Simulated scan of single mutants.
Amino acid sequence: MTHPESVTATITTPDDKDFTDLTLTIQSVRNYPYAVTTHNLTVNLLHTYFVLAGATPVLVHNCGELNLGSGDTPMADAVNVDLKAAPGVNVAADVGALPFRGGSFNAVHAINPLGFQPVSTETARAMNPGGILTVAASKSNKWRRAGSEAVAEAGFELLSAGGLDPKRAFGVMKRADGGIIPVGTNFETRVCRRL
Rank of each mutant, 00 (worst) to 15 (best):
T73K: 00
L159C: 01
N62Q: 01
N90Q: 03
T2G: 15
N31P: 09
R168W: 04
V191A: 03
R194E: 07
A176W: 09
E153R: 05
T12K: 08
N90C: 10
Q27V: 11
F170W: 00
G131H: 06
T10V: 13
N44H: 13
G69K: 07
T121Q: 12
V91E: 13
D15K: 01
A53L: 11
L45G: 11
T20Y: 03
S6Y: 04
N90D: 15
S28M: 00
S138F: 03
W143N: 07
A110I: 00
T10M: 13
D21Y: 00
A150S: 14
T13G: 11
V151W: 05
R168F: 06
D18E: 07
V89K: 03
Q27H: 09
D72Q: 08
K139N: 10
E5G: 05
V29F: 08
T12W: 03
L46E: 15
T25W: 05
V183S: 02
D82A: 05
V89G: 06
I181H: 10
G171E: 14
G64V: 05
Q27M: 09
T2F: 07
L24S: 06
E153W: 00
L22I: 02
G88A: 01
N90T: 08
N44M: 09
D16C: 10
I180T: 15
E153Y: 01
D165L: 07
D165C: 04
T42G: 12
C192V: 01
A76V: 08
T48Q: 13
M1I: 11
S148Y: 01
V29T: 15
F187K: 01
V135L: 02
H47P: 07
M1K: 08
T56M: 12
D18K: 05
A176S: 13
R125V: 07
Y49G: 15
I180L: 12
V89L: 08
G155A: 06
N186R: 02
R145T: 15
V91P: 14
A146T: 03
T123P: 08
V151L: 06
L66K: 00
E65C: 04
A93C: 09
L83K: 10
D94G: 12
K84M: 14
G71M: 05
P99E: 12
S28K: 12
N62T: 04
V43G: 12
F156K: 01
D16H: 00
P182Y: 00
G184Y: 03
G64D: 12
V135P: 09
G179Q: 09
I181R: 12
A55L: 06
V151T: 12
A124R: 02
K142N: 00
E5P: 04
F170E: 01
R145K: 14
D16A: 09
G171R: 09
L22S: 05
D72C: 04
G54N: 10
L114C: 13
L52P: 08
P182C: 02
G131P: 05
A107E: 14
V7L: 13
V51G: 10
E157R: 00
R168T: 03
L41Q: 13
R101Y: 09
A110W: 02
F187S: 06
R190E: 02
S70F: 01
A126G: 08
I181Q: 13
K167P: 02
N44P: 04
F50V: 08
A76R: 02
V60E: 15
T123E: 03
D21S: 09
L98K: 07
